[in-house]
């Protein structure tokens, strides 16, 4: 089971349909079951059988999550792989002591890979949909995997199975989620 974390300002907001449901559909298409958990309810959720966690994005104006970094302390101790998408990447970076800074992008952008040998980010360059108010300033424990002209677009932790992507993979780049699941998650899709 893949646990999808909703980072919108309240549980069950209108943003869930836009930012969580498309990711759930990609996960399902990959043959995995998913459940949704609001970021404020992390402690109360039964996480038995969780094989990976994906933190989803939020509307451009919805940045309350960034003021509640205590809700993301679990990321550093996560026993399963973590992927943060847009706001989710910002939460990941904040959890490890990094910061965010205003660096908006809206629309299609060009993303360039900065590393070789990563199992997810294998291409040199691609176009992606950016929709964010803040970019990230990760600490030294992260490897920068990809960048746009404006900001860092993808990171991976040096030792933990933790990734972040600033762009929205549900638009034309579903391979991000597909490769994350195929390379980092066990293949027992019935759990």
């Amino acid at each position: 089971m893949i646990l999808l974390v909703d980072l919108c300002y309240r549980p069950g907001s209108l943003g869930e349909a836009e930012f969580v449901r498309p990711i759930a559909d990609i996960v399902q298409a990959c043959g995995y079951r998913s459940e949704i958990c609001h970021f404020t309810e992390w402690e109360r959720v039964n996480k038995d059988g969780t094989e990976a966690v994906i933190l989803c994005g939020t509307p451009l104006k919805d940045n309350l999550f960034a003021e509640m970094t205590e809700c993301f302390a679990w990321i550093r101790e996560s026993p399963v792989p973590v992927l943060g998408i847009c706001a989710g990447m910002q939460a990941v970076v904040l959890a490890y002591g990094g910061s965010i800074e205003e660096n908006p992008e809206i629309g299609m952008i060009t993303v360039r890979c900065r590393v070789s040998g990563d199992p997810i980010f294998r291409d040199n360059e691609w176009t992606a949909y950016g929709l964010h108010r803040f970019g990230t300033v990760p600490g030294n424990e992260f490897i920068v995997l990809a960048e746009s002209d404006a900001c860092i677009q993808a990171v991976r932790h040096h030792t933990d199975p933790v990734y972040g992507v600033q762009f929205h993979p549900e638009v034309r780049n579903t391979w991000v989620v597909e490769r994350f699941l195929s390379t980092l998650v066990s293949h027992d899709k019935t759990r």
Partner: peptide, 27 residues
């Protein structure tokens, strides 16, 4: 439509408004 969505997002951003697309990439 990224063409439509991104243009409306930019207008909402300029006017400091929330922007929701609840059918975005719906099955």
């Amino acid at each position: 439509s990224v063409y439509q969505a991104s243009r409306i997002q930019k207008i909402c951003d300029a006017l400091s408004l929330w922007c929701y697309n609840p059918l975005w990439h719906i099955d």
